[in-house]
């Protein structure tokens, strides 16, 4: 269990404001995409719940498909964000 001495604070990271700003921009774009997707789900449930009973694919209704899609989309967007930020960091280190 070496390396688990939690008594010391890790030194404060030296951050590049440009990278932080770019990450924030990527984050905001992905957030807005997900917000629209989630907002659509909430609005459909609230104002047109019968739409959720239709069965567009796989023998499953829209409620199940849209619900699963929201969970999968969160995971996929999270991976895209991690990849984008990693790509930016690597590129900047190469400068």
């Amino acid at each position: 269990m070496a390396g688990l001495d939690h008594g010391q604070v890790h030194p404060k990271e030296i951050e590049d404001p440009l990278i932080a700003a770019r990450n924030a921009r990527y984050g905001m774009v992905l957030f807005l995409i997900y917000l629209a997707f989630y907002g659509g789900f909430v609005a459909l449930n609230a104002f047109s719940p019968t739409q959720m009973e239709t069965t567009p694919a796989l023998g499953l209704n829209l409620a199940i498909l849209y619900g699963f899609a929201l969970i999968v989309a969160a995971m996929v967007l999270a991976l895209i964000y991690a990849w984008l930020c990693r790509a930016v960091s690597a590129a900047d280190q190469g400068k």
């Binding site: 984050g27 905001m28 992905l30 789900f41 619900g67 929201l70 969970i71 969160a74 967007l77 999270a78």
Partner: peptide
């Protein structure tokens, strides 16, 4: 379940 998970998008991106 959907709402609880969606909240993590705000945590990650913002």
């Amino acid at each position: 379940s959907i709402g609880f998970l969606a909240g993590w998008v705000v945590a990650l991106f913002v």
